[in-house]
């Protein structure tokens, strides 16, 4: 009896909905996926460089919906210093390339005082062309289901209170995945 009543009320509700059938169809959901590139470098030279690679499929949010992702586009990118040797200052450059080494974007932060900006995000402003290049590289993601990137961090004209100089940071790039429901 309870089952019958439950189904009656459900049917009544859905019959009520039948008055209107013109609601906006929800077919896709935009999901932000942050890619993280942890980079650490040290040495006594006044120019240090290091890089890290990552593929979208390594990140949980991407993995979970990989089969239903129709497309992806660039949203935002930023750099953080996690730790630095005392008084470390220099010209920082963050470059992100595709898996073949083609530069997608390159952003410089002149006279960057790393040790004074621990955990402070520095938003990387891309040019319009760089955003287009990044999105072009992402545009085929629906076919392969994955894209791999290389992020390199270079700090030049280093000054600091002591050697060896060291810098640990990370680059994060957020892409928006269009997930088909």
């Amino acid at each position: 009896m309870k089952v019958i009543l439950n189904r009656f009320f459900l049917l009544t509700l859905f019959a009520s909905f039948s008055f209107f059938n013109g609601c906006d169809e929800l077919t896709n959901l935009p999901i932000n996926v942050p890619m993280v590139f942890p980079i650490s470098t040290s040495g006594t030279n006044t120019t240090l460089t290091e890089s890290a690679s990552a593929c979208l499929s390594q990140f949980d949010d991407w993995q979970q919906y990989q089969e239903d992702i129709q497309s992806a586009t660039f949203v935002s990118a930023a750099y953080w210093t996690e730790s630095a040797s005392s008084g470390l200052t220099g010209n920082v450059n963050v470059t992100v390339s595709d898996n073949l080494g083609n530069v997608l974007f390159s952003v410089s932060i002149p006279n960057y005082a790393a040790s004074s900006n621990i955990d402070q995000p520095y938003t990387l402003e891309l040019t319009e062309n760089e955003i287009i290049a990044f999105n072009d590289y992402l545009s085929q993601v629906g076919d392969s289901g994955d894209r791999c990137f290389n992020a390199s961090l270079t700090i030049s004209n280093i000054t600091g209170n002591s050697t060896p100089y060291s810098l640990t940071g990370r680059v994060e790039v957020v892409v928006e995945a269009d997930v088909e429901l």
């Binding site: 859905f14 019959a15 009520s16 013109g22 609601c23 929800l26 959901l29 932000n32 942050p34 990370r170």
Partner: peptide
């Protein structure tokens, strides 16, 4: 400070049908 914080999307609806 801890990285990107991503917020949930919505259901992107401007009109919702329902009944009673």
């Amino acid at each position: 400070t801890g990285g990107y914080v991503v917020y949930p999307p919505g259901i992107n609806q401007t009109s919702i049908p329902t009944g009673i």
